[in-house]
């Protein structure tokens, strides 16, 4: 049965708000494109490509939310699959890893999402760190190739931890039973995603406007102290102002947003370090202007498990 959501539903209000922000961004981007000389347009063109991609991403999340829990599970399952594909593509494995990769893609990934779906907390929170960690190297040993064995086993495990385990903690938020917050857990996901993503965007904006001093020149050519401070501060404030969609009071939402933003920022640095080591700029090319799925989600990967466990500890 399809029930039309009421306009006063917080989720609908949120999406209307996001739509309004994107609309303003789109108008600003188009005006900038008109008023900038073609020779200096590269940054503006990239900005507009990013804004267009944001429309698509917001729409996809909106559609997933409309289908409720199953929609969110399917969305993040696909996101994990795409992220793992980018990760494994860029970290060379050998032919002896064939069965390990078959197991990673076709067993571990779907099983993790089934466990999240049936809300078996005791197993989904250790499935990859314990069972994946022990069983995949056994399959690798069966492949009989000892060249760089530990390195290869570590790469696959790392890929699964980042792309599957960490990302699956976003839909896992639906499994939390918080008193007085029943049937509203989708908003917890909205809170996490909005805070992390706005932090990325605001760091980018602050960095472009007044970024001077590189924060980690060896890891990232674009992250500056100014972008970091301005972005984290403004995204944390935004998180606090969204307290009404969370089970937290204003101060709680503020602190949660700060933790999320710091984890997201540091996660971005870690993922940058891996990219620099591989000599690449982006994980992939799937999202116009942004790079790959992992480029957009690196901060979510690091923020989601911590947000999940803090919320679980304090609220249930």
């Amino acid at each position: 049965m399809i029930t039309l959501p009421a306009l006063r539903d917080p989720a609908v209000e949120l999406f209307l708000g996001i739509g309004a922000v994107l609309l303003i961004a789109t108008v600003v981007g188009r005006v900038l494109a008109w008023t900038t000389q073609p020779a200096k347009r590269a940054t503006i063109d990239n900005l507009n490509a990013r804004i267009n991609a944001w429309w698509v991403m917001a729409l996809l999340v909106g559609i997933a939310f409309a289908f409720g829990k199953s929609g969110v599970l399917v969305l993040f399952f696909l996101v994990s699959l795409l992220a793992l594909r980018e990760f494994i593509t860029l970290l060379p494995t050998r032919s002896g890893d064939y069965w390990v990769l078959v197991a990673a893609f076709y067993l571990v990934l779907p099983i993790q999402y089934v466990l999240v779906g049936i809300e078996w907390y005791g197993l989904f929170s250790i499935f990859i760190p314990v069972y994946g960690f022990l069983l995949l190297p056994i399959l690798a040993a069966g492949g009989g190739d000892t060249t760089r064995f530990l390195e290869r086993a570590a790469k696959v495990q790392w890929g699964l931890m980042i792309c599957v385990f960490c990302i699956s903690h976003v839909p896992a938020l639906l499994a939390l039973r918080i008193a007085g917050y029943e049937h509203r857990n989708l908003l917890l996901i909205a809170f996490l995603v909005i805070v992390v993503q706005s932090s990325d965007v605001l760091q980018y904006v602050w960095g472009k406007l007044c970024g001077r001093h590189l924060i980690a020149p060896k890891l990232s050519p674009s992250k500056t102290w100014e972008g970091f401070a301005g972005g984290i501060a403004s995204a944390t404030l935004l998180g606090g102002l969204l307290w009404w969609i969370t089970p937290f009071p204003f101060w709680g939402a503020l602190v949660m947003a700060l933790v999320i933003n710091l984890m997201g920022f540091l996660g971005g640095l870690v993922m940058s370090a891996i990219k620099r080591d591989r000599g690449i700029k982006d994980w992939g090319h799937m999202i116009e202007g942004h790079g790959g799925v992992l480029d957009r989600l690196d901060s979510v990967c690091f923020a989601a498990p911590v947000f999940f466990h803090l919320t679980r500890y304090f609220m249930t």
């Binding site: 699959l81 594909r85 494994i88 593509t89 064939y98 078959v102 893609f105 992939g284």
Partner: peptide
Amino acid sequence: RLIPLPLL
């Protein structure tokens, strides 16, 4: 091998 892997 029979099962293709999803890689870019």
